[in-house]
């Protein structure tokens, strides 16, 4: 295999305070292109911190992180912001769609800050929406969509800039079982197209979709043997 997309080496993250919290304790993790990884674990185990570190939203206290071979710990804040815009797509539990914008405008916001050519934005957004099966609702506002549809719009937004890595934080946390299924199918499709996916969840069914599962417990990451 080639260079890993994500390479964490003894990464720690400690939150200072009267009672220091060790959210990550010397985590080693290598994720290769095209992998679908589920991160499971109870709340407070450090899952979200791991995701924030991976998504360049948070900086580790120690250790090294190579994203696509780039040492992000050496990068300054503005460079990490730029990397985030180009290489990483986020899917949030609460969707984070702009209520007053149409579906296609929401998707196009992901192309605002990464130098994507203005004329190609609409076409790219249309393509991304079609990939998640939302090509028919482009001019509606998010309020008129169901939860599953909203999350698929959010996925379209996350992939429109063609990132190296898709990070999903409890993507089905606000959805019922039935609508969850459509979102998970969308992930499966993206996986088939070769996208690298990391999904943080405490839901076993969601984790079951992934080919590789890791568990977080008290800031320590453990690789789980997958049955499939």
């Amino acid at each position: 295999m080639s260079l890993p997309v994500v390479l964490l080496e003894s990464v720690s993250r400690t939150f200072e305070g009267t009672q220091p919290v060790h959210a990550l304790r010397s985590v080693d993790l290598a994720i290769y292109e095209g992998e679908y990884v589920a991160v499971t674990g109870p709340s407070g185990s450090g899952k979200s911190t791991l995701l924030n570190v991976l998504g360049l939203l948070d900086e580790p206290t120690s250790g090294s992180y190579l994203l696509d071979g780039v040492d992000v710990r050496a990068a300054v804040d503005s460079e990490r912001t730029a990397l985030r815009g180009r290489k990483i797509g986020f899917v949030f539990q609460a969707f984070h769609l702009l209520r007053h914008r149409t579906v296609i405008e929401n998707v196009m916001t992901a192309l605002l800050y990464n130098g994507f050519p203005r004329k190609e934005r609409r076409t790219a957004a249309q393509t991304a929406l079609a990939r998640v099966g939302m090509g028919h609702r482009m001019e509606q506002t998010p309020d008129t969509l169901s939860g599953g549809e909203r999350q698929r719009v959010a996925i379209a937004r996350a992939i429109v800039a063609e990132p190296s890595l898709l990070l999903a934080d409890e993507p089905t946390g606000n959805l019922d079982t039935k609508t969850s299924e459509s979102v998970l199918e969308a992930f499966d499709d993206l996986r088939r197209d070769g996208l690298t996916l990391i999904v943080v969840t405490h839901d076993a069914t969601v984790g079951a979709h992934a080919e590789r599962q890791v568990e977080m417990l008290d800031g320590i990451l453990t690789e789980l043997e997958t049955s499939t």
Partner: peptide
């Protein structure tokens, strides 16, 4: 605030 967070996650710098 949520929108600001989202935009930052989409690669918006502080100055943006």
């Amino acid at each position: 605030v949520g929108e600001i967070g989202l935009r930052r996650s989409l690669g918006a710098a502080r100055r943006h």
